[in-house]
């Protein structure tokens, strides 16, 4: 298939970017979206132009690096996937595809389609861990009785790959789905409950400090999340913060 691509080009974090049009031809419908981007970049390199910078790593949907806003949606029109898992069969021959970086004040553009997501790392460092002795005398995790329901919910929350699609798609650029998932995966388990009050306070404080917006419960994040993290996690975070303050 032949496509017209409208891509955000921005030289560096300080430059003023703009949309630039490109044409790609003979794209196979079996290609992943990132492979289509590779074809474009090869074409640009061959003609002596600067290739389009975009984030990618594992290309199997688990690293959370690929981060494109495609035709007005995080990771494009498909559901439960990252951009590397988006297939070109989702588009038609002759389509014009708009490709933009994640947009949020807390995710500044570094170059072209790459944004700085270190804000998520700093939120994690503020409390997204448990303080256990790992010097070899750690208690066997299986010796703690945990209900199947709690274990499953914690595991579901822990599948968050920190890609930032929730922030990118939120009309308020809120990071509450990410923080909710990270708070939940620990709050549901006995190992995490020891530090739960301090964790939720510190992570929410860091989230606010980074300049993310306030959740208005539109639910857009859970629809666009590649890992199906639900709004229940935000509700749980709200409960945890209330509990920690009373």
């Amino acid at each position: 298939m032949n496509l017209t691509l409208k891509i955000w080009r921005q030289k560096d974090s300080k430059a003023k970017g703009q949309m630039v049009d490109y044409k790609v031809t003979d794209i196979s419908e079996h290609m992943s979206f990132l492979e289509m981007m590779d074809v474009l970049n090869e074409q640009l390199v061959n003609t002596g132009e600067e290739p389009v910078a975009f984030d990618h790593d594992c290309r199997e949907g688990i690293c959370g690096m690929c981060s494109l806003y495609i035709n007005g949606e995080a990771h494009g029109p498909d559901r439960g996937i990252t951009t590397c898992q988006l297939h070109m069969r989702m588009f038609k021959d002759g389509d014009t595809i708009t490709i933009e970086p994640w947009r949020a004040a807390a995710f500044p553009v570094i170059k072209d389609l790459i944004v700085d997501r270190m804000a998520f790392e700093r939120i994690q460092q503020a409390g997204g861990f448990i303080s256990v002795n790992t010097s070899g005398n750690t208690q066997d995790a299986n010796s703690l009785p945990i209900s199947k329901i709690a274990a499953d919910e914690a595991m579901d929350a822990a599948t968050c790959i920190g890609c930032g699609a929730c922030v990118a798609t939120c009309k308020n650029s809120s990071a509450m789905l990410f923080v909710g998932a990270k708070v939940s995966q620990y709050a549901l388990l006995p190992q995490g409950q020891v530090e739960a009050p301090e964790r939720v306070k510190n992570m929410v404080a860091q989230m606010d400090l980074e300049g993310f917006g306030n959740c208005t419960n539109t639910g857009a994040c859970e629809v666009e999340c590649p890992k199906g993290i639900t709004l229940e996690n935000i509700a749980r975070m709200n409960r945890e913060l209330m509990k920690a303050n009373i």
Partner: peptide, 27 residues
Amino acid sequence: LELKNKKANGVAYVRNNGAANSTWMSR
């Protein structure tokens, strides 16, 4: 909250399909 949220947005998207994932009322 609306003003704070607008500030958190940064640069606006050229193309944004809000109807794909949320209701008009919520937005």
